[in-house]
Amino acid sequence: MPGPTHVQATINGEEVNFLCEPRQSLLEVLRDVLGMTGTKEGCNDGNCGACTVLFDGRIIDSCLVLGVEIQGREVTTIEGLATADGLHPIQQAFLENAALQCGICTPGFIVAAKGLLDEEPDADEGRIRHWLAGNLCRCTGYDKIVRAVLDAGEKMK
């Protein structure tokens, strides 16, 4: 059994070096190796979207990517959205629209919404519901989440 692998990647704009076992998912690496627990685990099989991160700008489930696969790539997590100047407009919209209840799915939804609104700030309700179909929320019935994303889209135009 060989030892862990060295991986170099860019996470939230910063170069990061870490060691991980090939069997460790990106989600495990983020949470357990790098201590970035904002990305949540809900199912570990790609069916809830709680672990959504941006991978080279594209949303993916970090539980379905191996840590070793991010070698040389760029990852953005929920921790990378707010800046010293304040919250990202999507984060602000989630707060103002009461779009979170327990909050466990919230990071995944916000990152997924960023993946959409960066490209399509005009996305309508149908498009938003389709885009977020891979993110489960059990508290809200999605109503206020969809409204928050519509609202954020307005602000990001």
Binding site: R31, G35, M36, T37, G38, T39, K40, E41, T77, I78, E79, L81, A82, L87, Q91, F94, L95, E96, A98, L100, G103, I104, T106, P107, I110
Partner: peptide, 22 residues
């Protein structure tokens, strides 16, 4: 309808849920 006191921590991923503890 004020903003909830724990809101910011939850939208930036800082809130500590059970599995987050180390």
């Amino acid at each position: 309808r004020p903003i909830r006191p724990d809101g910011v921590d939850k939208v930036i991923g800082r809130a500590q849920y059970g599995p987050d503890i180390t």
